[in-house]
Structures are given as C-alpha cells and as structure tokens.
Amino acid sequence: MIPASFDYSRPSSLEEALAVLGDAGEEAKVLAGGQSLLPLLRLRLAYPTTLIDIGRVAELRGIADHGDHVFIGAMTTHHEVVRSPVVNEHCPLVALATATVADRAVRHRGTFGGSLAHADPAGDLPSVALALDMDLVVRSSSGERVIPAADFFVDYLEPALEPGEILVGARVPKLGPGWGFHYEKFHRTAQAWATVGVAAAVRRSNGTVAEARIALTNMGPTPIRAVAVEAAVRGAAADRNGALREAAEQAAEGTDPPGDLHARPDYRAHLSRVLTHRALLAACAV
C-alpha cells in the first residue's frame, strides 16, 4: 500500500527531538525502527502529519549496567539487545523474548523502545516489561518522569505517553540469584506474532516456588499479569509432579483473549494454560 504524505524531520539530539515534537502538534509521530509504524502508514490506518525520526539520536541508544538495574535505551535495536552480554547476564528474560521477535531483518531495525511504546499486546516485550516490573523513563521538554510498567500499557496500542513525550528507555531490575526465566511463545510461523506468549520469572528455594512473576502476551487489550497463577504457584513443588500444571490452570483468569484468524478466544485461553505450565517448568529448569 501507499502511505499518504507527511512531513519528515530527523533531529540529531534528544533536546532537538523534544523541541520538534513539542512544536509539531498532536498529529506528529515519533519514528523509531518503523517496523510497526510504517505498516500502519502504508495501510492508511494512521495519518500522522509529521514523522520525527529519532534514528540519529545517539543518547537514546545503548545498554548500561547501573548496579541494581540495567538501563536499555529506547533506540537500542532488538538485535543489539539479543547480543548484549549485560542483558544476557542480568536480564536474560529480555534477551530470550527479544530473540523470538520476527526475523533478523526486523530485529535489525525494530527497537526495544518502539516495541514498548507501540503497546501492542501481541508484542513480546510488553509482557516482559510487566513481568520484570520495569520502570519506563519518559522525557518531554518539561522534564522526565518514570512510569512503572504496570501503569504504562493503558489499552490496545495505547501507552501512557502524553503528547510531546518520548520514551527514553527502561530500567530493568536485576533479579538476584535463585531466579529462573523463560519466555514461551506460540506462533504459527517463525515470523508471526505470538498467538499467545508467557513471560515467566520464578525464584525457587528448597525445591519449591518461592515467588513467580508471570505475564501474558496477547491475552487481552494489554499485556496482563497472571496474578491467579502467581498466587497459586507460591509454595508449589518445582517439579513435574503436577503442582505447576495445577497452578497454570489459572492462567486465563481475568484475561480477555481476542479472537482473530489465528485463534479464537477459547483456544487462546486453553493455550495460555498449556504455555504457562511449560513456562513454569522451563523457568524452574525441571
């Protein structure tokens, strides 16, 4: 398809980007890797007046170890995240999930921040952000604010960003020793979005689950924490004898799974249970 016309600007610093964004009005859009935004333009599902390409804003790119957390800049590409030793060591769930995003071509262009800011419940990173309780750092010309992941995903494709705000990056808490991680993604082709995905972080002690954080991809208009599972699994034996499966039976509680050509809601609900069980087993390494 062919996009409608728009103005284009490519600032080279964050300050300049914020200024341009402030001036451009509500119909302006930030352009990151373009892997979600350009399809919307080409299908004429979005008609922004101006695209502000932040691809040259160096401050937004990169990964830094800050002791208790890792900071991932919004413009860091999926490819860079997957390759990062810091991410792999301290927040492996991010690397695991990112490695399942689309294909190499998309991972070389698509960005970490774009994936969060797009707030697509079928995206793999929003549920990871939720499971890990990331803090999302946002800037506008009037300053910076920090939005917990739990407050960031407001509705379908609707992040808690105000006009004029740019997502700078996310603080990813380092979970200490004893935690295991897994991202279980079910999709129909290797390049397809998750039909359902499950992000799981589990802390074990003495052969039982001490604490679990589980978030679901594509089980409603936003990513969603599987709180019922998190509660049910606490204290469960971390083995294959059935306790994890039983806890996982709660996975669809409180969700509102969409129906589309790839899966109807009841099948998604079923998948969420099976996949949550598998994610728990893998995160417990049993």
Binding site: P39, D103, R188, T189, A190, Q191, A192, W193, L261
Partner: peptide, 15 residues
C-alpha cells in the same frame, strides 16, 4: 479478511 501477510500466512524456510 486475509489482505496482508500477517493474516494470510506463508511459510518461510524457518518453518
């Protein structure tokens, strides 16, 4: 309904 390749699935070598 299957107007795009997100809806009309074609396998790639990986599949």
């Amino acid at each position: 309904l299957t107007t795009t390749m997100a809806d009309y699935l074609l396998p790639s070598a990986t599949d």
